[in-house]
Design a binder for these strands. Structure first.
Length: 874
RNA sequence: GGGAGCAUAGCUCAGCUGGUUCAGAGCAUCUGCCUUACAAGCAGAGGGUCACAGGUUCGAAUCCUGUUGCUCCCA
């Protein structure tokens, strides 16, 4: 046997073999049937993305949940797919074309889209192939893409529906503008970073006076668009200026001096210039105080005609130039260094420009209400629940959602414009024409044109849990699989995606999209830095899997990642995972090796019988804990529970307890029980380590073609004998005592010894045979008297004696007993101080009191034993 | 500026409704072992003022208040 089964587990060979087997036998395929469904939809990765460590963590957890559910007999359905990721993908295609010397502006929309599709077909789906290496048990027949024909249609239909309901409108609003990508961004696509800036102090002359007022700004170029100066009404320094006017330097425009609580008196000079067209807060001030709006910037970040000066220059060049010009005109008071936060585009990394722009919006106020309520009342549960707070905070202050993007790659907005600018929202040009004519607007096929903009990527992904089941056009699948069960995702996209799926779920299905949301942490490197391409600190997941095996990496990922906490990734975690795999492998080799040593004539030894009984109870009681860990999404604890059950209980204790002495055979009863236990262990291990467990499962017993541990049953807990569990605890104390004694006294393990036990209560002999087996003890005798000429050690309930095999150091022994006495006396003192406290005795619950009294009597007995030992030595 | 969270062993974290000397786990470290499944292993050991200061209580890592430090989200 050992010739066939290698001594080290080799993951590379087995993984591909079993993944093909699983695919071949369609073990992950799901179609609606009479079973309870268990559904998970994958957070669709970018279609042209490659697998990174974040995906590894996220998909390992999903696979774990799905595999367990499948074993529990549920109809497990994990839907994979990809997202068209409009900005990210378009940027990549633009970049690729540029490298080939083609500018996007030289192409027509259709030509560009052709390139984009080509790119998508070439690079799309790589990531899905990589997920298979990880062992992901998705139903690949269901793979969806957010720009699939049907999916595209559902996005467009949703737009039209919301428009008809009055939830979508077109309007001029302050939006985040990306001057590099030339597109609007949603608030969530703006990343704020601290940068070193300069705070320019600029003085404005007061009209009709020689007095100046000094404002402070980090963006002096926007002076060109100033339409007011603002101070805090409570600010004594400026009270005399309320209602007066100031002159904007260089452009010499007269603007009002207004007062508003918004101004912070402590910041800068306590005086603010107001540029409503180029700052969110200034825009609000402008609306409130009815200020003029001067849009002094072009979409590419250069100064427009309205700016009067520096027309056509870039905003950052102007910033330098205007500082000089203000200096020359005598208006620049001083420049301070300042660290402030500046918004950058998530995609192009350009400094975002707040800009007034005509865009499409979703009115979120009403739509979001059920989504808030159903999370707050736990219809949808968040794990960990702390994320409910930020969710509520966001939902209660929700802003309208800017959904138009000035891009080509994506779902084109179904709006049609007449030459005069009037528009109709309709699915097709024909319908649009009809709608125009119904309103008496004379247009024809050639005069109307479709909106150029596409929709925000998230406007398609928010339909994901419905659209993957064709839920907008057919009930068959969606009625069965929806609501899905668990969503596993990163907290970073709680607002982008999770919140909006919940909104769409209630709007279009009248029901929650998923019952539980498990938020994973961010995978960071050992030093706590985010993994990124530029830092080069992210290992390649495929390399890791080659090195440690997919199972090893899976275990490594889960070892230290409690829900919502960041994971400080270190290869040594995968090493630990690989070592665990090897440990299981060797345990299996040991058990399997006994198969040919089974001797039908042998009867089961008492030690083995006890061991089997104990292991069964231990397994069953641990399974209860394990199921509870899963139910509470304590994933890493579920792993640790399993890890200890296998490594400590099964390998370190059980296998040693039943291991026959060298050269002897194994009885059939114990062998069969062991195979049975190992099979159950493989069951609870399978979600963590699918490949290894499948390999061993097939070795362990003859299996029929097509059978798999993937669809074997998750073990069911039964019969927990709590007596044997507590007897085991006592036994392990004794065994550790003997091992220590042997070590201290240099009594080799091979030397068989006697043991005498003096118990202060009815002795627990349950594990005596096991103790003899584990510690090479010839006989255990019980005695009321104290034997002489022995080493000894003491547990809570008994005293153990091993006869001397050589001279002993009396002083050394006395020292040890003294130390133990000191400890137990201290313990007793702390217990008695409680018991002597009348208020404790009167107030503490009976159970607590009783346990204290038990402690008292146990330690009194122990002290007596130790004192006697000491006396005996003297 | 607004909101949320965290602080426990060298590291990563448990510690659920206050109650075993409650101060735990895994890893790392140290010591001894190549013992016939496994050195990717076995047997042991050390290591912490539970951030700080108060308070509530018979009893606080746990509940309350303040302080300090850190993180995240939002503007």
């Amino acid at each position: 046997m050992s010739a066939e089964i290698p001594s080290k587990y080799d993951p590379i060979q087995t993984e591909d073999k079993w993944y093909s087997y699983w695919m071949e036998h369609k073990l992950f395929k799901s179609v609606p049937d009479s079973r309870e469904p268990y559904t998970v939809v994958i957070p669709p990765p970018n279609v042209t993305g490659v697998l990174h460590m974040g995906h590894m963590l996220n998909n390992t957890i999903q696979d774990l949940l799905v595999r367990r559910a499948r074993m529990q007999g549920k109809n497990a359905c994990w839907v994979p797919g990809t997202d068209h990721a409009s900005i990210a993908t378009e940027a990549k295609v633009v970049q690729k074309l540029r490298a080939e010397g083609v500018k996007k502006s030289d192409l027509s929309r259709d030509q560009f889209l052709e390139h984009a599709w080509e790119w998508t077909h070439k690079h799309g789906g790589i990531i899905l192939e990589q997920l298979k290496k990880l062992g992901a048990s998705c139903d690949w027949d269901r793979t969806r893409f957010t720009m699939d024909e049907k999916y595209y249609e559902s996005v467009v239909d949703t737009f039209i529906d919301l428009y008809k309901k009055g939830k979508i409108y077109r309007g001029e609003r302050m939006i985040n503008w990306d001057p590099a990508a030339l597109t609007a961004l949603s608030d969530e696509e703006v990343i704020y970073r601290e940068v070193n800036s300069k705070l320019y102090h600029v003085r404005y002359r007061i009209v009709g006076s020689d007095e100046f007022i000094t404002i402070a700004t980090t963006r002096p170029e926007t002076i060109l668009g100033d339409t007011a100066v603002c101070v805090n009404p409570k600010d004594e320094r400026y009270k005399h200026l309320h209602g007066k006017r100031a002159i904007v330097p260089l452009v010499n425009r007269e603007v009002p001096i207004i007062a508003d609580e918004y101004v912070e008196m402590e910041f800068g000079t306590g005086c603010l210039k107001v540029t409503p067209a180029h700052d969110m807060n200034d825009f609000m001030l402008g609306e409130k105080h009815k200020l003029e709006i001067i849009n002094m910037m072009n979409d590419n970040g250069t100064i427009s005609e309205a700016g009067q000066l520096y027309v056509g220059m870039d905003r950052f060049d102007v910033r330098k130039q205007i500082a000089e010009d203000l200096q020359n005109s005598g208006n620049l008071v001083k420049i301070e260094e300042l660290i402030n936060k500046v918004g950058f585009s998530e995609r192009s990394d350009a400094v975002v420009e707040p800009r007034l722009s005509l865009q499409w919006f979703v009115d979120m106020k009403e739509l979001s209400k059920p989504a808030l309520d159903h999370v707050m009342n736990d219809d949808i549960k968040f794990f960990p629940s702390k994320f409910k707070n930020s969710y509520r905070n966001w939902m209660e202050n929700i802003k309208d959602w800017c959904i138009s993007r000035q891009l080509w790659w994506g779902h084109r907005i179904p709006a049609w414009y007449a030459p005069d600018g009037q528009f109709e929202v309709a699915k097709t040009k024909e319908e649009a024409l009809q709608q125009f004519s119904q309103k008496g607007i004379a247009v024809d096929v050639n005069s109307i044109r479709q909106e150029e903009d596409v929709l925000d990527t998230w406007f398609s992904s928010w339909l994901w849990p419905i659209s993957v089941f064709d839920g907008f056009y057919s009930d068959e699948e969606v009625d069965y699989y929806y609501p899905t069960n668990d969503l596993v995702t990163a907290p970073e996209i709680m607002f982008f995606w999770v919140a909006r799926m919940i909104i769409a779920g209630y709007e279009y299905r009248g029901d929650l999209p998923f019952r539980n949301v498990y938020y994973t942490g961010i995978v960071r490197d050992k030093q706590g830095r985010k993994m990124s391409k530029s830092l080069g600190n992210s290992p390649d997941p495929l390399d890791l899997m080659k090195k440690f095996g997919a199972d090893g990496v899976r275990v490594g990922m889960l070892l230290s990642s409690p829900a919502g906490n960041d994971l400080l990734f270190d290869e040594s975690l995968c090493e630990q995972g690989r070592n665990f795999a090897n440990k299981i492998w060797n345990a299996f080799r040991l058990v399997k090796g006994w198969e040919e040593k089974v001797d039908k004539n042998l009867t089961q030894s008492q030690a083995a019988k006890t061991a089997v009984n104990w292991m069964q109870s231990k397994f069953n009681s641990t399974l209860v804990t394990l199921n509870d860990d899963y139910d509470k999404f304590r994933i890493n604890e579920a792993l640790m529970t399993t890890y200890k059950l296998v490594w400590d209980d099964f390998c370190a204790w059980y296998l040693e307890m039943i291991k026959p002495p060298f050269g002897q055979g194994m009885d059939a009863t114990t062998y069969e029980a062991s195979v049975d236990i190992l099979e159950k262990l493989l069951g609870v291990l399978h979600p963590f380590m699918p490949f290894l467990t499948e390999e061993i499962w097939h070795y362990l017993k003859p299996r029929t073609e097509g059978s798999s541990i993937c669809t074997a049953s998750w073990p069911v807990s039964s019969n927990v004998d709590s007596n044997i569990l507590s007897s085991f605890e006592k036994m392990s104390e004794v065994v550790i005592g003997i091992r220590n004694l042997r070590k201290e006294k240099n009594i080799p393990n091979k030397e068989s010894i006697e043991m005498i036990v003096r118990a202060n209560q009815e002795p627990d002999k349950e594990f005596d045979a096991v103790i003899q087996h584990l510690c090479n003890i010839q006989s255990i005798t019980y005695s009321a008297d104290k034997p002489t000429g022995c080493f000894s050690f003491v547990t809570a309930t008994a005293e153990y004696f091993i006869p001397f095999t050589q001279q002993i150091d009396v002083e050394e022994e006395k020292k040890k007993i003294d130390a133990e006495l000191t400890y137990v006396r201290g313990f007793l003192k702390s217990v008695e101080s409680k018991l002597n406290n009348e208020r404790f005795v009167n107030n503490a619950p009976t159970a607590v009191l009783e346990s204290e009294r038990k402690k008292q009597s146990d330690s009194l007995a122990k002290i007596q034993m130790l004192e006697e030992q000491l006396k005996a030595l003297n």
